[in-house]
Computed example of a mutant assay.
Amino acid sequence: MNKSQIQFSEHIRYAGGERKFEIDLYQLQELLNVSAFWAKGRSIEDLGIAIANSEPVISVSDRDQLIGFARATSDGIYRATIWDVVIHPEYQSSGLGSNLVKTVLSHPRMRWVERVYLMTTYQQGFYEKIGFQPNTTTTMVLHNLANLALVPATEDQLQ
């Protein structure tokens, strides 16, 4: 690996007030399929939707090849969540993953957030080295939201 060819990039730009993402979704799909058991098989369309609704979106490239990726969602002040942190297996253990997470955390949308969350199955030690702490008391999950028969609150219930 020639470090002089490694480049970190943010992939959201604004054009005419509209958010546009500039990342090769096919390379991203391949990177996730090779590097992330939890993200295998994601469709190009779904990846585009996820990226369009995330900020920051950070990638790591070696020349023109995507070798790392992470994204986050945030309200900009109270809470944020980091998603899809991945480094290609050939580039792991080189410090790129830590730099990727630190790049996400230093983004203006993330810098002042009170709490940053992430989910990980096997990489707790990696994130603890960056400063994350285990949190077993606040995380809950609702699966298959689209399949639930949710009834919106009435105006009386919201008051």
Rank of each mutant, 00 (worst) to 15 (best):
F69V: 01
S43V: 11
T121W: 12
Y78I: 08
Q92H: 12
W83I: 00
Y117L: 13
T103L: 06
Q124Y: 05
V34A: 03
G95K: 14
Q27V: 08
V101Y: 03
R115V: 15
E45P: 01
K102M: 04
S98V: 09
F69Y: 11
A50T: 03
V104S: 07
R111Y: 01
Y78S: 07
F69K: 02
D62A: 10
Q123R: 13
G68S: 07
L100N: 00
R63Q: 13
Y127P: 00
P89M: 09
Y122N: 08
Q27N: 08
V60L: 02
K40A: 02
I77R: 12
A52N: 15
K20P: 03
S43L: 08
R109T: 10
K102L: 07
V113E: 11
H88W: 04
R115C: 03
G48K: 01
I44A: 12
A39E: 11
Y26V: 12
E18F: 03
S59T: 15
S59Q: 08
I49E: 15
P56G: 06
Q124T: 10
F126P: 01
R79W: 09
N33M: 09
G41M: 12
T81H: 04
T120C: 02
M119R: 01
T81S: 09
S93H: 14
Q65N: 06
P89S: 09
I51S: 07
W38H: 05
E30G: 12
M119C: 05
Y127L: 04
A52R: 12
Y127D: 02
D84H: 13
I58V: 15
T81P: 00
A36R: 14
A80M: 00
S59H: 07
T121Y: 13
V113C: 04
I87Q: 03
I44S: 12
E45W: 00
S43H: 09
I87D: 01
F37C: 06
S74T: 08
G16R: 10
G68E: 09
S93I: 07
R115W: 11
P89F: 05
T103D: 13
D64C: 08
G125R: 10
H88I: 01
A52T: 15
P89G: 06
I77V: 13
R71I: 04
Y122M: 09
Y91I: 04
D46A: 14
R79G: 08
L105K: 10
K20H: 15
D46H: 14
S43A: 12
W83A: 08
Y127F: 15
